[in-house]
């Protein structure tokens, strides 16, 4: 079959959404299904940067208990905070 994503960037991102915390596994998986492909390349890069954060810090950001000083990150987090899981 033809592969629309020869360097597998979506697969890499999908795998890096595998976390140590179940809370993040669930939210990030739902986000990937729902809207990741609609993000601009710059937003995709911002998302990839967020995945580099420690699990506990990322969960604080995603659950709204803390905020990022970076505007692009904060805008993307705003979307992540609205991700429904049920």
């Amino acid at each position: 079959m033809t592969n629309p994503d020869p360097d597998r960037s979506l697969d890499r991102i999908r795998w890096r959404c595998r976390r140590g915390l179940l809370e993040l596994d669930l939210i990030l998986a739902r986000f990937l299904e729902g809207g990741f492909e609609r993000l601009t390349p710059a937003q995709q890069e911002t998302f990839s940067g967020l995945l580099g954060r420690a699990d506990t810090d990322l969960w604080d950001l995603v659950s709204g208990r803390s905020h990022s000083a970076d505007q692009a990150e904060e805008a993307l987090l705003d979307t992540l905070r609205r991700v429904g899981t049920v």
């Binding site: 595998r18 976390r19 140590g20 915390l21 420690a54 699990d55 506990t56």
Partner: peptide, 12 residues
Amino acid sequence: SKVFPTRSHTVA
């Protein structure tokens, strides 16, 4: 490791 070490489930 399948994932970066500090993302292991011990974190929970």
